[in-house]
Design a binder for these strands. Structure first.
Length: 547
RNA sequence: CGGGGAGUGGCGCAGUUUGGCAGCGCGCCUGGUUUGGGACCAGGAGGUCCCGGGUUCGAAUCCCGGCUCCCCGACCA
């Protein structure tokens, strides 16, 4: 991971444990700059900074119901009175606890609060340096509304503020529709910085600009049309033909004419999942539908359930059946007979299946048309890898109902508050900015988030004249309000240049015997290869052009 | 949680197979030379060999138990 390597080598961070890092002074300066950008943008949409505790009594987690359901499990300990305390992974509970005693009327809203706070999540596997850690700084904001339209408006404002924040940090992001995961709520959007090293896969149509996380992406399915003839079910011998591809060749039919059935376990209970032969299961969609973790059954488990691997059929058994909406209930299909080497043709799902759900549980793929795509113009979605740097959610009243966050509306009727929540991982944002702009040798940060504005090096530390000139230039720059990293170490030029390249500082000023002969210094802007020779009295002016 | 790997000076590692003086490179300290792309010479400091137990005259090395970290997968704002 490039960002991890550079952050460590440049001395920004140091690892204390798995997914737990210390920041050094230079690293923390960058974190503070990012936080200040966030603060500025939050203030500009009237979101006010507050602070909520890291350690929280478990009561509020009981109220929200997340005490035992949060994934990963909540980190907890007992205090001296034997009371269970939670090390907070997120702050919905605590913010609601504050707000519910203050909000009584629709007149009290809308408003929003944010804080930048340490969170702890006991992730199963931290990885990628600052990209997935256990303890981390996160900005999270919460908004409160009397109705959904108002939530929609503020959600858009946050969205715009997020684009500003990420752009100022030097990264381009794509906003995508996302799965809301453990936080809950219905609608959510992720901000993804496109990077090869990213953990998330997104699908995006570059023509109509539909974009979604792979977990969430919805697409146009090929639906088999209804055959007019009243077709009878018949058995067809299909010796050792198990895959959809083989069937497709055997029958000389497109793969959507077949039904593929998989066996999953959801909280130890078997569930059959069927979809058109050309598609695959999206386990996130399935998980959300079942409200439970899912796991694909292995071959032995399938046999134990009395099913025949390769020829599984939802006919003739009583397992719960989930049908993807790619399947036309009235059309006729070919599917397994649950007998070795035999398939059934002419099966009309509506007549034969005992269906529990008929909905979208299929995985979108590169090249598919999204649900928003225009068939005549769009050419199918492209696939990108990326880093999730922000995630915003329309929570609705999911939390406010559970925790009794209510208000009286204009008619004097009690209703629950509509909420939104908006997160940014600060350390991850730094890592993403580095991933987006750096290379093997150079840590590149733009002037908004670099630890210092200017690096100056005295190249001849043993020369009194150079030393005095360097000191005086340093003082002048400080007095002009620049943040300056002054390299006056007794090291050779190579050492200094290499360390500068790792420093993340955008401008290098070199002061040496050679240049001082003309009362000049040498200014190099990162990313350029042309040195500028600048008279000492013009340094300030030159810098103001660059910074 | 499953699979694999590692733990020896500040950092990176060798030594473990076959038990027998605790080693190397970088960094650090002192002195000197050098000074526009990670310099050089000389001298020096620095160790709970992850922890606990066992075998042995003797354990970094063998045996048992534990901890931690890394990688792949599962999982995951």
């Amino acid at each position: 991971m490039l960002s991890h390597k550079l952050l460590t080598k440049a001395g920004y961070i140091s690892q204390l444990g798995a997914g737990i890092f210390s920041f050094t002074p230079i690293g923390w300066r960058v974190i503070e700059k990012i936080k200040n950008i966030i603060r500025y943008e939050m203030n500009s949409i009237d979101c006010h900074e507050a602070n909520f505790p890291v350690i929280q009594p478990s009561d509020i987690w009981e109220e929200s119901g997340r005490i035992d359901s949060f994934i990963p499990p909540l980190a907890r300990f007992k205090d001296r009175r034997d009371k269970i305390m939670i090390i907070a992974p997120t702050h919905e509970e605590s913010v609601i606890s504050l707000v519910r005693s203050e909000v009584n009327s629709y007149r009290d809203m809308p408003f929003s609060l944010f804080h930048i706070q340490t969170k702890f999540r006991d992730e199963t596997r931290p990885r990628g340096g600052l990209l997935r850690v256990r303890e981390f700084e996160m900005k999270d904001a919460y908004s409160f509304h009397a109705d959904q339209n108002d939530l929609d408006d503020i959600y858009e404002k946050f969205s715009n503020a997020y684009f500003n924040i990420f752009n100022k940090c030097g990264i381009d992001v794509i906003k995508v529709a996302a799965d809301s995961g453990a936080i809950g709520g219905k609608v959510s959007s992720e901000f993804i910085s496109v990077a090869e090293s990213g953990e998330d896969t997104i699908l995006k149509c570059d023509i109509c600009s539909y974009a979604a996380n792979e977990e969430k992406a919805e697409f146009k399915k090929i639906i088999k049309t209804i055959n007019n003839n009243s077709i009878e079910i018949s058995e067809v011998k299909t010796p050792n033909i198990k895959s959809i591809k083989d069937l497709s060749n055997f029958f000389n039919l497109d793969s959507y004419n077949f039904i593929k059935t998989m066996v999953y376990f959801s909280s130890k209970k078997p569930v059959l999942v069927s979809l058109a032969g050309d598609l695959e299961v999206n386990e996130t969609k399935l998980k959300n539908l079942l409200q439970n973790d899912v796991r694909l059954a292995n071959n032995d488990e399938v046999v134990d359930l009395g099913l025949t691997p390769g020829f599984i059929s939802p006919i003739g058994n009583n397992f719960d059946l989930i049908l993807d909406d790619s399947i036309n209930l009235k059309a006729d299909y070919i599917l397994g007979a649950n007998k070795e080497d035999i398939h059934l043709s002419g099966v009309v799902p509506e007549k034969e299946f005992n269906i529990k759900s008929h909905t979208d549980i299929a995985k979108a793929k590169k090249g598919y048309l999204s649900i928003d795509c225009d068939d005549t113009k769009c050419k199918g979605m492209n696939e990108y890898k990326g880093i999730e740097v922000g995630h915003i959610f329309k929570l609705g009243n999911a939390y406010s109902t559970k925790m009794g966050l209510n208000f009286l509306d204009k008619e004097g009727k009690q209703r629950s508050v509509e909420m939104g929540c908006y997160g940014i991982g600060v350390g991850r944002l730094l890592a993403a900015a580095i991933e987006a702009n750096s290379n093997q040798k150079e840590l590149v940060l733009n002037k908004n988030i670099s630890p210092f504005h200017v690096y100056i090096a005295n190249l001849n530390t043993d020369n009194l004249e150079v030393k005095e000139a360097s000191n005086s230039i340093y003082s002048d720059l400080i007095n002009s309000g620049y943040e300056v990293l002054f390299d006056d170490r007794d090291e050779g030029p190579g050492v200094k240049f290499n360390d500068y390249e790792l420093s993340g500082v955008p401008v290098r000023i070199v002061i040496s015997k050679r240049s001082l002969e003309n009362s000049e210094v040498e200014i190099l802007e990162r990313g350029e290869d042309k040195l500028r020779m600048v008279k000492i009295e013009n340094i300030d002016k030159e810098l103001s052009n660059i910074l």
